[in-house]
Amino acid sequence: MLLWLRYQRDAPGEPISVAAGEGHAADMQPLPPRSGMPGAWLTVGLRPVRAGLNIVTAVADCEITVTNAGDAPAEAIRAALVLISAHGGQSGDIDAANAEPIVRPVVSPFALAPGEERTFRSVAASQIDALPTMRAGGREMLVPLVVLNLQHRDTAGLEHRTSQAFVLGVERVDSPKLAPFWLDSLRMIDQVAARPSGAALRRRVTTAAAGVGYIS
């Protein structure tokens, strides 16, 4: 199911919340299962440990689990994590993040045999003044989007990219919806969760002098 965002006032005096697809807020969010395709098939779960805002930056500390659900090894796996924000033109920002070469992976490159998985932590941060924000009820809010890119090499030496965006929000005790981060409340929060934003994007990579190219 594609993630959908809705900003609404649940009742007078209550904060605006972010509604997402089905699933428990604290659960890891896997990508769709492999569909009979041969070769390596990477799936990912992302769990934000804590996230929030300070005067200068938006920060998300995340636990990431990568699994090879395919029938062949995935070699030289590199991971990159980018923090952007939800807004009307977010699809362009996600596309730009997905197109970035992975020059400095967040962990050393690793390999996964079929059925193996690896879990690691990574922190993504961006300057608040570079992120689009939204206003509601006279208050300014930020809805972080974490874009995760995985690139691996198959046994034939071809490069493949798996990309997935996740929306982050504050868990609420009175609702399954996620609340946004308010810019008039600068702090780190432990009670956060993630929802996949759209479906995973999987492409074969061709390197070029101008950057990264993709073959669908």
Rank of each mutant, 00 (worst) to 15 (best):
I77M: 13
G157I: 11
K177L: 04
V167L: 15
G157V: 11
A113S: 15
G45Q: 12
V18L: 12
S85D: 00
R195L: 13
N149H: 02
A79G: 11
D184A: 11
R161C: 10
V212S: 07
E116G: 08
F181K: 01
L178I: 03
S185L: 12
L183Y: 00
R203I: 05
R161S: 13
V146H: 01
G36P: 00
K177Q: 12
Q29N: 05
A124P: 06
T67F: 01
A97P: 01
A125S: 13
L42F: 01
R50M: 00
T65C: 09
L83I: 11
R204W: 07
R78V: 14
F166N: 03
A40R: 01
D71Q: 09
I102E: 11
G169P: 00
A26T: 15
L53M: 02
V143R: 00
N54M: 02
G52C: 05
N149L: 09
P15V: 11
P132V: 01
A124Y: 03
M141E: 08
T119C: 07
D184I: 01
R121V: 06
M188I: 13
L5G: 01
E116S: 14
A79I: 08
A165Q: 04
H24N: 14
G88P: 01
P48R: 08
Q29M: 13
W41T: 08
M37Y: 12
H152I: 07
A200G: 04
P114K: 13
F110A: 10
G88L: 14
L145W: 10
A194P: 00
S122R: 14
G211Q: 02
D93K: 05
A96V: 05
R118D: 08
S175W: 06
A208V: 10
E14S: 09
